[in-house]
């Protein structure tokens, strides 16, 4: 499964992150560890499951 993360400029769209149907109200970044991609928040907590592949638009 390929998960697509789309970067949205704030103010242009709703400031909501929809993660596999789940809405997350915080800023996140994409990180890679042991061949899996994750989302982390600014406290450094991983807030998603690991994905094998990922692309951004």
């Amino acid at each position: 499964m390929i998960v697509v993360f789309i970067l949205i400029k704030k103010g242009k769209r709703l400031p909501i992150i929809i993660l596999m149907g789940r809405k997350i109200y915080e800023w996140v970044a994409i990180v890679k560890r042991k061949s899996l991609y994750y989302l982390i928040n600014r406290s450094g907590q991983i807030i998603s499951e690991g994905y094998q592949d990922m692309t951004t638009e």
């Binding site: 789309i6 970067l7 949205i8 704030k10 909501i16 996140v28 970044a29 890679k32 989302l39 951004t56």
Partner: peptide
């Protein structure tokens, strides 16, 4: 601890399609 990382780009948010 990460093999790769993107910035918390200010003014941007992430959206999963």
């Amino acid at each position: 601890i990460y093999d790769d990382a993107l910035d918390f780009s200010e003014g941007w948010l992430l959206y999963v399609k």
